[in-house]
């Protein structure tokens, strides 16, 4: 039982990270019908900017744990959001009216570019977040000592997802995003500036992805320049599980994938951890390509 709870919390934590990344994929797909293949690299960028702030500049040492970490979270989200916005301007906007395949190629190109840029800036060898950035305390849950960082990551992920849910469903801007996702043409003719909606989606998604990068660094320690590939692919799988284009789907899909992965690693074999993820992807694509949630693909954000 202890072992199971350990795996459960582990799965929910990593699932929270997957979900945050998956939201970026799914929102962009919802509005533009484009898979942003460079999204994984934005996640990596978040991890590296977080490294610079927390390790190189020692933010938590300078400002204290709470303020230092809060500062880092806000800065990482903002900077990666800027990067995402630039990416949309440079790599996608010029291709908005061309063939969809052109945008896909551009996305792949942007992914390679970003990965190499990160490598040139921070180096090819792996770096590691220091384990003492956050106080090394544990909380007891069901009699199990739980590292504080795990709880924090999960809570932040849930808090951010809840905020996004409210934003999309309760605010006027969120409604404009939903309208543009359902029917761009009709949205334009109802006075919604779809270009602005797209720009906004390319700010929110990367901000969440960057935040996920920072949290992955805090949670595991080591980061490297191509970590975004595997995280990106897994988050993409999570988005597919929930039904791509579906925001609630990405949240559920991320958590579900995290759980599957940690349970699979624990009860089947650690070696099969990634294999399980991609088997799930294949099974979903074959039997339920529209995702597990009931809404149809991309019609609902």
């Amino acid at each position: 039982m202890d072992f199971f709870i350990q795996q459960l919390t582990n799965g929910l934590t990593v699932g929270g990270i997957y979900a945050l990344i998956a939201l970026g994929y799914t929102m962009v797909y919802g509005v533009m019908k484009l898979i942003n293949f460079a999204h994984g690299e934005l996640f990596t960028l978040g991890a590296y900017i977080g490294f610079t702030l927390l390790v190189t500049f020692n933010f938590t040492g300078l400002f204290g744990t709470v303020i230092g970490l809060g500062f880092s979270v806000i800065l990482v989200s903002c900077l990666v959001a800027v990067a995402g916005h630039l990416l949309e301007r440079v790599a996608y906007r010029p291709l908005r009216h061309s063939d969809r395949l052109a945008a896909v190629v551009s996305a792949l190109g942007a992914s390679i570019f970003l990965q190499n840029a990160i490598m040139l800036k921070w180096g090819a060898q792996r770096l590691a977040y220091k384990p003492n950035i956050l106080p090394n305390v544990s909380v007891n849950i069901f009699g199990q000592p739980m590292p504080f960082i795990r709880i924090l990551v999960f809570l932040v992920a849930v808090f951010v997802m809840f905020g996004l849910y409210i934003f999309i469903n309760r605010t006027r801007t969120g409604m404009a995003i939903r309208a543009a996702a359902i029917d761009q043409g009709a949205a334009k003719l109802m006075g919604i500036d779809v270009s602005r909606v797209i720009a906004l989606v390319f700010i929110i998604g990367p901000a969440l992805g960057g935040l996920a990068g920072l949290m992955a660094g805090l949670l595991y320690g080591p980061i490297n320049f191509n970590m975004g590939q595997i995280y990106g692919l897994k988050a993409f799988t999570a988005a597919i599980i929930g039904g791509i284009g579906n925001i609630q789907g990405a949240m559920v899909g991320g958590l579900l994938l995290g759980l599957l992965e940690s349970m699979g690693a624990a009860y089947i074999s650690v070696a099969w951890k990634d294999g399980i993820t991609f088997m799930v992807l294949i099974v979903i694509l074959v039997f339920r390509p529209t995702g597990l949630l009931p809404e149809r693909v991309a019609e609902k954000l």
């Binding site: 006027r172 801007t173 409604m175 404009a176 939903r178 309208a179 359902i182 029917d183 043409g185 009709a186 949205a187 109802m190 006075g191 919604i192 906004l200 809404e295 019609e299 609902k300």
Partner: peptide, 24 residues
């Protein structure tokens, strides 16, 4: 070309969107 998954009221609100002054 309504937004079928949105409520009747939300569809009308989407039309009001362009007249709203306050920003994000």
């Amino acid at each position: 070309r309504l937004f079928p998954h949105m409520s009747v009221l939300e569809n009308v609100l989407s039309g009001c969107h362009c007249r709203m002054q306050s920003g994000l």
